[in-house]
């Protein structure tokens, strides 16, 4: 198992945001944290990244306990819910930031930035600022920025939330393909079951800070284990989706 959480608890001023959360994700897989708003998905992602500390429980990456490892040492790329692009830096500088911090050589940085701009098909837009981009373009920049330092794990917090429905479908396919091409272990957060079904290998269903069920999209649909899972997952929509494919 590559990324693993064991009995993780987290409270905010007495409020239980995570209750005994345990799951494991295989190397190279793409997992979705699926659950309604406020169910504690972002909290889990932030604890894996090291932006928040769990109250109890262990977080393991590649069989090593990383609870006490600094966020920057965990080899994680993070795409924030609202992208959090550096607004006073150009697209190219945004992508280069992580490499500059690592004191990589100028030539290496330049090559990597060009490679990533190519990957997200934004070669001509490297000199633009984030506010001069469309929502979809911003999302792609955030993706490239997270990938630039070659992380082992990619975490994406509602990568499509801020994008209108029309473009969303397109970006979904794009992201799935990109992640497949890079071959990186990734976890993404969503409250949209269709999204989770379509692009994840594994779905971790979250409700009120608890893991309700873990399984492949087909498993979760065909045999929901809890009442919440049965309620939350609309099997008919899933079937429609599958038949469309």
């Amino acid at each position: 198992m590559y990324v693993e959480m064991r009995h993780v608890n987290k409270t905010f001023d007495g409020f239980h945001a995570s209750r005994d959360v345990s799951f494991a994700i295989k190397k190279g897989h793409m997992a979705a944290l699926l659950g309604p708003s406020g169910s504690g998905k972002t909290t889990i992602l932030r604890m894996i990244a090291g932006l928040d500390q769990p109250d109890s429980g262990d977080i393991l990456i590649d069989e090593v306990r990383v609870n006490d490892l600094r966020a920057s040492k965990r080899g994680i790329g993070f795409v924030f819910q609202n992208y959090a692009l550096f607004r006073y830096m150009t697209v190219a500088d945004n992508i280069a930031f992580g490499l500059e911090v690592q004191k990589k050589s100028k030539a290496e940085i330049k090559a990597r930035v060009e490679e990533l701009l190519e990957l997200i098909s934004m070669k001509e837009l490297g000199k633009r600022y984030p506010h001069q981009l469309s929502g979809g373009q911003r999302q792609r920049v955030a993706f490239a920025r997270a990938l630039a330092p070659r992380p082992q794990i990619l975490l994406l917090d509602e990568p499509f939330a801020a994008i209108d429905a029309k473009v969303r479908q397109e970006l979904r396919t794009w992201l799935k393909e990109m992640i497949g091409r890079v071959g990186i272990t990734s976890i993404f957060v969503t409250h949209d079951q269709e999204e989770a079904m379509e692009i994840a290998d594994r779905i971790i269903l979250i409700n009120q800070g608890k893991v309700e069920q873990i399984g492949t999209p087909a498993e979760i649909c065909s045999c929901p284990e809890t009442e919440f899972a049965a309620d939350f997952i609309d099997a008919r929509r899933f079937e429609a989706l599958m038949s469309m494919k």
Binding site: L51, A71, S72, F78, F86, G98, V101, P149
Partner: peptide
Amino acid sequence: DEEEAAALMGAGGFTIFRK
């Protein structure tokens, strides 16, 4: 968010403030 993003990439406190 931006500061967290920078910290996650390993930027130190002073770099984050400056940039």
